[in-house]
Simulated assay, not measured.
Amino acid sequence: MTSGTDNSSSQTDFFELSSSQTSAHPHFAELCNALYERELYQLATQGPSQIQLLRRRLSGLSHHVKRAAYFLANNDAPIEVDSHNASWQGKQAAKCPGYQVDGEKNAAWFARHAQHGLVVPVRVALLDTQHVELDSVDRVLPDERKLHVNKHGWFHFSGEPLAEASSAPLSQHQLLRPTKPIMTAACCGHAWNHKGKTSPRALSLREMLLSGTIDWKTFRLTKPR
């Protein structure tokens, strides 16, 4: 029978790099294990009910986990990485930094910089709670001054949604112009309610992948690593 110690060692080595790579990425395996455990829990509790879709998600899981771990291990972000939890850590503001939006500044920024693949923040408010999520632009209509993001749909350049999702009538969404405080809140999973700060939420694997592609100097689209 294999001992518990052997099982632990096998799990730790599952995502190991070569010896030369390990010296350059000492936390890679730990990051992978944390990401893998978190995503498996999400798939088990909130994943797709269709077997084929679930199999497809699982088949690509290892690749996406390694990619997210690589970004975390090689980041140049002005926020810290908690390798034990595979998460970003940064000081949380007293209030959501995306609560007040200047529509004109939003519109001017997106008119200049909106393009396919750009990582953008979206403020999500549900009942008395709110947080900022990372999303990505997948379509831009400059003549109509609007864009579409992968998860949250269509927005005017000003940040207002074209239509709220009927499946979540109590939620509100606002596209935000990326700034350091807003992107820090999004990457760290900061959340607030009417009393103030609440426990941070865990980012999805998709958001972790998006967080690794942010250009923290300009917040504009950069070439993929």
Rank of each mutant, 00 (worst) to 15 (best):
F15S: 00
A77E: 01
T184H: 03
R145T: 11
Q11L: 08
T5Y: 15
G103Q: 10
A191R: 02
A185V: 02
V149N: 07
S59V: 07
S158E: 14
V122P: 03
S62E: 14
W192E: 00
N106W: 03
V81I: 09
G98Y: 08
K180R: 13
L61W: 09
G60Q: 12
E164S: 09
K223T: 15
C32T: 02
Y36A: 04
E207N: 06
A86D: 00
K223P: 15
H116V: 12
F155V: 04
A202R: 11
D138R: 14
L210C: 06
P178L: 08
G90H: 04
H63I: 06
H131A: 05
E37L: 12
F157C: 13
L209K: 05
S18Q: 10
N33I: 00
H173I: 04
K95T: 10
Q130G: 00
K180C: 11
H116K: 12
R38L: 11
K91S: 12
S199R: 12
K195Y: 10
T2C: 13
S211W: 00
V81G: 02
S158F: 08
E30C: 01
R123C: 06
A86Q: 00
F157R: 06
N150G: 07
Q11P: 10
T179E: 13
N33S: 03
A69D: 01
D102H: 13
R225P: 15
G47C: 04
N150E: 15
S62H: 15
L72N: 05
F157N: 05
L54K: 10
E133S: 10
D13M: 05
G212T: 01
D102F: 13
F14S: 10
K180T: 12
Y99P: 06
K105N: 13
V120R: 02
A73G: 03
N7T: 11
Q92L: 03
L58S: 13
A94Y: 05
A77P: 04
R123P: 08
N193P: 02
L147M: 12
F155H: 12
G159S: 08
P224W: 15
P78L: 02
A185K: 01
W216R: 03
E207T: 08
T5I: 13
Q92Y: 06
T222R: 15
D138C: 12
R55P: 14
W88A: 01
A73V: 03
S83W: 14
A108C: 11
L141W: 12
